[in-house]
Nucleic acid binder design. Structure first.
Lengths: 190, 190, 190, 190
DNA sequence: GATGAATGAGCCTTCATTCAT
DNA sequence: TATGAATGAAGGCTCATTCAT
């Protein structure tokens, strides 16, 4: 299942995301995805075994993409706050620029498509962040709270900032980004 | 004549929520809801015009429920931090205890079932919170940041705490609740 | 199955006819008939065993009504042409004034509701007419053609006059009636 | 790729007509039509948007067919009575040979499937006949009666002859045809 | 008898999947 | 490989009929 026209797979992914954004996960059909991707219905089944495989596969790609972007330019040797700000703002910006993917992932989370196993791989992608947080605690820069909750705090703010930027059609200026970061930092700093 | 069993509506609501939790919004069918509610398929249509009406109606009930609980015991004359803590912990606890409803609302948000209008009514329910935040700023207790982002910060943390409590099967002790509140408060306090 | 409120049966009949006129035989439902008749659905089943029984019963009533009216004031001893004119115009006028019933009967004719037996009873109701025609032939007043076709000719013109009067919203003046009769008479007279 | 089997449309039409003849318009279901046409239910929806579209479409085809046959071999320059006989007997014969279509059209007429517009196009198809009738009046060959009623007379007889030929299983010999025509002609001739 | 809520079989329609070209 | 017509299982919904009140 690795046919030559790799580019066509991306067409299918994009078509799927577009459909999910427009109609929700419940609203996508193989025909509508095919139509959106400008291919025949049957062609979908050359690239993906079935609907579940398509969605699962896209889900994995989205998760991998996220993780990749989150840690872009991350230098484990840079000072803690610099690294933390970098990752935090990477996350915010990626969730905004790839908001369609975020919606898709969110919708998948409780769907029958995603099984428990798939759900857990998500966790592993955040290990670099966990390690950074641990280091912050060791350096006495941030509160001595269970890393689990520190990350919850961090992700929660990131998600909501992204959501609201999109839904309320806000422009996320550097000033606003920094203001939000300030709250987040004040929340975790020792 | 058999009188219309008003409490049957609640049976249907509960059945719907259970199905959504198990299979996602995309996975519910009128038959599965009916089966879960121990009624015939046709009976569903006595109480709700169609599937969309059922979901929309349940959505409204959930939203109304939430707002009601969020501001339970809220006394606008109490000191700011007391009120803020009350509402914040109400939100966390309600989102945990009614997690199924939360999932449902989240899934609805991007579905074709919920229209723009419905989406906006949601906003109004949070006005008491907005007023409290404004008061906090006037009393110089919290940062002078756009209320919009202060609320984003607040809700983001609340959501993620609830999510993780459920998904990772954590017990939310008073200690953990307070630790999380501390982060949130440090984030917004002046 | 002869309950006291005979009047209610007529309500049901009228409601049925009204529904058939509005939506065709395919369009009637027991609930719509009940609603139109201002009774509960269940009540229908007190007066009629089931839907088929209701329709069949109404069909018979309509047929009987027709036959009754067709031969109203008919005196077998009156001169042939007088009798013929009387019956012919009775038929035209009845089919117009009871047009809803005519539609109903026509729609029934090819429906699964009406069986072969029922269909044949219709034939018997026209025996007086057949006898009159035979007499006309004996008196050498009308053509010596198989009575079967003479009646076909007669009924065909009657039906079409009635149909067009209704569909094209014509007013059937005595003049027009007589003009049409003239054609019919010229057609059959010896 | 399997090309769209255009002749399948005719299979569907024939299956529909057969079902209507057997069970009436009220009795047809998409599954029964599909089964009769030896295709899957879903295939019906490739060729017709829905049940209404199928019926409407078939109705139009039937009407067009009729009009085509009615005026077959009609030469406007031929003597009046010749033309009149031609059309009259065309009508009789077509209504008999395509009796299933006739039943279908009749049943449609009062159904919710056929709207007012559709009903009116029917009228236009008879314009050549109307012109012939007018010519007959100008040539003083037929009675000076409103064309509307002359046509009513004509169609009424045609319909009833066809109906009875079928229902009573008669063989329409040339002799019988001519006998009937004689009545019709005597009815309208000046 | 009268009511209308409840039922569930069955209808119309959709859609994941297959298959002939 | 690509196509899209064909399939039929399954979903939303209706409606004849029953039944508790």
């Amino acid at each position: 299942m690795k046919p030559r026209d790799e580019n066509k797979i991306d067409q299918i992914y994009q078509a799927t995301l577009k459909q999910v954004k427009a109609n929700g996960l419940a609203g996508i059909t193989m025909q509508s995805v095919a139509r959106e991707a400008n291919i025949a219905t049957g062609t979908l089944y050359i690239y993906f075994k079935n609907k579940e495989a398509l969605i699962l596969s896209l889900y994995h790609v989205c998760v991998k993409n996220s993780a990749g972007v989150y840690f872009k330019n991350y230098d484990p040797k840079a000072p803690f706050k610099v690294s933390f700000y970098l990752i935090w703002s990477n996350m915010v910006q990626h969730r905004i620029s790839s908001f369609t993917e975020s919606i898709f992932m969110e919708q998948c989370y409780h769907s029958p498509f995603i099984d428990e196993d798939t759900r857990k791989t998500l966790k592993k992608m955040f290990e670099p962040l966990m390690n950074l947080i641990k280091r912050g605690k060791e350096e006495r820069l941030i509160k001595d709270i269970d890393t689990f909750w520190l990350i919850a705090f961090l992700i929660g703010t990131v998600n909501e900032i992204a959501k609201r930027t999109i839904y309320f059609n806000k422009k996320l200026t550097t000033e606003i980004l920094n203001t939000n970061f300030q709250m987040c930092w004040d929340g975790i700093k020792a």
